[in-house]
């Protein structure tokens, strides 16, 4: 143990922790913006179709999408180092959580689980979207109408928002700018609101299936 501590670089640990903080913040920002983009469908299909155009016009899509992918990969490495990697460790933490029955410990366990889930689901999601680039109402509606996709999105939505909500809470708590109880309440409300918004958006997208005509324009 001593050897490990002595040969250890504290600066590196600091940089990693800072990078985790920054990547965390950026990803939260991305996901919430992303959800609002999708929710633009609530304003109307035109608004929805306007988003990708806007993104492409300013090259935000071309730079943004790869940047997000890199960010996610970085985050998987940074935050992922916390995932109990040996089976025994997983067992230990599971047993500990069950015994302790402590709220914040459970949320962390679910943060890890949802993180892993997102890793798989979001990869598939990004692949399906990007491989049929561009985005518009009809393509989206076509995808969302298929029931496996619909359920897929609901799961991804809940995992994503939960993960991000808890993630932001954890950042706030670790760096300590807010009182825990208050922060947690505010974030719970935001998370539930966004999930609700997401579900409504999905239904609205679905309702547009066939309405705006098929195929890309």
């Amino acid at each position: 143990m001593l050897q490990r501590i002595l040969t250890h670089s504290n600066k590196t640990d600091l940089v990693i922790d800072l990078a985790e903080l920054i990547s965390g913040f950026l990803l939260v920002g991305f996901l919430w913006v992303h959800m609002f983009f999708v929710a633009s469908v609530l304003v109307g299909p035109q608004a929805f179709n306007q988003v990708p155009k806007f993104l492409e016009a300013y090259y935000l899509a071309q730079i943004g999408i790869p940047a997000v992918i890199v960010l996610i990969l970085a985050h998987m490495v940074l935050a992922g180092r916390r995932i109990p990697n040996r089976l025994q460790e997983m067992k230990m933490i599971w047993k500990h959580s069950r015994l302790l029955m402590h709220y914040d410990t459970w949320t962390w366990v679910f943060q890890v689980i949802t993180g892993v889930a997102i890793g798989i689901l979001a990869a598939a999601h990004i692949w399906t979207v990007v491989s049929r680039w561009t985005i518009n109402m009809s393509i989206s509606a076509e995808r969302v109408t298929q029931s496996p996709y619909f359920i897929f999105y609901i799961i991804l939505l809940i995992c994503g928002e939960y993960h991000v909500g808890i993630g932001l809470y954890r950042i706030g708590v670790k760096w300590g700018w807010f009182k825990r109880q208050k922060l947690s309440k505010v974030l719970d409300v935001i998370t539930l609101a966004i999930i609700a918004m997401g579900i409504v958006s999905l239904f609205v997208i679905k309702s547009h299936a066939g309405v705006t005509g098929g195929g890309g324009q």
């Binding site: 640990d13 600091l14 990693i16 922790d17 916390r82 302790l100 402590h102 914040d104 410990t105 962390w108 954890r170 708590v173 670790k174 825990r180």
Partner: peptide
């Protein structure tokens, strides 16, 4: 930097 903010301590 090892603390992940589990807050059981608190």
């Amino acid at each position: 930097f090892g603390c992940v903010g589990l807050m059981a301590c608190d």
